[in-house]
Amino acid sequence: MSNARREHHKQIVAELADTAMALARSIAEKALAAESVEQTIELTQAYERVARSVRLSIDLCEKLDRHDRDDARAARADRYVGFSVHGAARQRQHDDRIEAVRAAVRRSIEQECEGEDSDAFEAALDLALAEAALNDGFDSISAVQWTAVLRQKLGLPEHLTLDVPDPRPTPS
């Protein structure tokens, strides 16, 4: 259901709940002021039916709100991951690309640094790679290019040449 249509339905249900609540108040007043037992019973039964309608309307509003939250959560998940629900193979390729870039930059770090310096570079690499992987274009740029970008970002020399596998996503 579209958001506009769902919002329209929520407005209708809210209006029904408001009207039913006003009716319930009116019936309650009449039931309290009833002069006979039969009239009190009849008005009390009417009140119970209207009160149930109000409760069901409120429940339906909450259900529609839950659907909105679920849709928003799914949209955020798709946006952060960058793939549709049908993209399990793409997700694996995305993860493979991350690992290929990580391995290539780590080799640069190992060639350039030793000991404690390499630990600091590795930590910086993890942060930079996590940020890069969230980039919408991460999978459209080659692993070689990402490796060069990250090496530059970390201040590693560009003269190092590395063999970087490039797990390209297959066109969908």
Rank of each mutant, 00 (worst) to 15 (best):
V13P: 02
D119R: 12
D95K: 07
Q152F: 06
M21C: 06
F121C: 11
E35N: 06
D68C: 12
Q93P: 01
N3D: 13
R92V: 15
V13Q: 06
E62N: 15
E29C: 10
R73T: 15
A51K: 13
D119A: 08
A33Q: 09
K63N: 12
Q39Y: 03
A17V: 14
R52W: 06
E29K: 11
K153G: 01
V144A: 13
Q39H: 08
A14Y: 05
I98D: 00
R73W: 08
K30C: 08
E122L: 07
G82K: 02
L134P: 01
Q91M: 14
P167R: 04
A100R: 00
S57M: 07
A22W: 03
L150A: 02
I58F: 06
F83K: 06
G87R: 04
Y80W: 10
D96R: 07
V164P: 00
S108G: 12
E116Y: 05
L125W: 02
I141L: 10
Q91V: 15
R92G: 05
D163S: 13
A103L: 06
D96E: 11
I109T: 02
D68H: 09
R66W: 08
T19V: 08
Q45M: 07
G82F: 02
D18Y: 05
K153Q: 14
A103I: 01
A143G: 03
C61F: 04
N3H: 11
E48S: 11
A28R: 13
A22G: 07
V144H: 03
D163L: 11
E114W: 05
E42T: 12
A33H: 05
R25A: 10
V81S: 09
R90T: 07
S36F: 05
L150P: 00
A89M: 11
V54D: 09
A143E: 01
D119V: 06
E38A: 14
L23Y: 04
E35R: 08
V149A: 04
A46T: 05
D119I: 07
V54E: 10
Q39W: 03
S53D: 08
L154G: 04
E116S: 09
R6Q: 13
A34W: 04
D70Y: 07
P171V: 09
D59I: 09
S36Q: 03
Q111G: 04
V149W: 00
T147S: 04
E15D: 13
I109Q: 00
E110W: 02
R5T: 14
R66I: 12
R106N: 09
A46Q: 15
H67N: 13
D126T: 08
T161K: 14
A143N: 00
A130H: 10
R49P: 00
D139W: 00
V13C: 08
D78S: 11
V105R: 00
P165I: 08
R97Q: 12
A33D: 11
D71K: 09
L125Y: 03
A24M: 10
L156S: 02
L162Q: 08
A143C: 14
K10F: 05
A4P: 03
T170A: 15
P169H: 07
C61Q: 15
E7Q: 11
D139C: 12
R79S: 10
A46V: 01
K30D: 13
A33I: 04
T44E: 08
A89D: 13
Q93W: 03
D117Q: 12
L162N: 03
D18I: 07
Q45K: 14
V13A: 11
L134S: 12
E158Y: 02
T44H: 05
A4I: 11
I27P: 00
A100N: 03
A34F: 08
A143K: 00
